[in-house]
């Protein structure tokens, strides 16, 4: 016998179920209860940068749209800064960078408006980096300084929950007009299979003079979106 480690264990996940909207977006469930629902305004009125819209659909293993999915988004501002005390820099007043996205219950189509995020400093090199720190790394090797950092290409972090999804799925949305940055992105480059990388790249288009990116998410099967264990 040995001593016991006294860590607690994380509470297990359970599916958000078909009625997730009651809790997280009651207006969509069909009733009005709160002074304000959270997650409808991602960037706020003062955010600098390019205003964009992102649209898509989540598709299940049979090829059909998932009509009851809920997606949360988390992104930096146009300067690559997150609205969080541990992200270096300031964000514009009213910029939260977090949103909730729900589908049209009839079609499964979803969309949200935001600003295009800027490149984000990596905390430390990702992927198959050196096992031991470089000789001159000092304490910075653990990512508390600039040593060894790589910028990440502009991206939006997504977290997907729904009936039938037992634990939220994490993925990232990148932009197809950031070819150069994407080619150097440490997370995209971590994906061994080159032909799976495009599943994370939204396609830029225009509609009525507005920039609209398309980003479909495939939960299973051919063209399955890359999901991450973060």
């Amino acid at each position: 016998m040995v001593q016991k480690l006294d860590y607690l264990k994380e509470t297990p996940s359970q599916t958000a179920g078909p009625y997730v909207h009651i809790g997280l977006a009651p207006g969509a469930a069909g009733f009005d209860i709160y002074r304000q629902e959270l997650g409808w305004d991602i960037a706020g009125p003062n955010a600098k940068g390019e205003r964009i819209r992102i649209e898509g659909i989540v598709i299940d293993g049979t090829g059909n749209p998932v009509k009851d999915v809920l997606i949360e988004t988390w992104q930096a501002n146009a300067e690559g800064v997150y609205a969080h005390p541990e992200s270096a820099g300031e964000v514009e007043k009213g910029f939260r960078g977090w949103g909730r996205v729900i589908t049209d219950f009839e079609t499964g189509e979803w969309g949200f408006d935001t600003v295009k995020p800027g490149p984000v400093k990596a905390r430390k090199p990702l992927g198959s980096g050196p096992l031991h720190p470089p000789a001159n790394a000092g304490d910075d090797w653990l990512g508390r300084g600039d040593e060894g950092h790589e910028d990440m290409a502009p991206h939006i972090n997504l977290w997907i929950v729904a009936r039938g999804i037992n634990i939220g799925l994490n993925t990232r949305l990148y932009f197809d007009d950031e070819e150069e940055a994407n080619a150097k992105d440490p997370v995209l480059n971590l994906i061994e299979w080159h032909n799976r990388r495009p599943t994370l790249i939204a396609k830029r288009g225009e509609r009525d003079g507005k920039v609209v990116y398309r980003f479909d998410i495939r939960l299973q099967g051919e063209g399955e979106t890359v999901f991450f264990d973060v």
Partner: peptide, 13 residues
Amino acid sequence: ISLQQSVSEITGP
């Protein structure tokens, strides 16, 4: 795909 956490993961709303 397992990801070492970047600033994108260690921050949140």
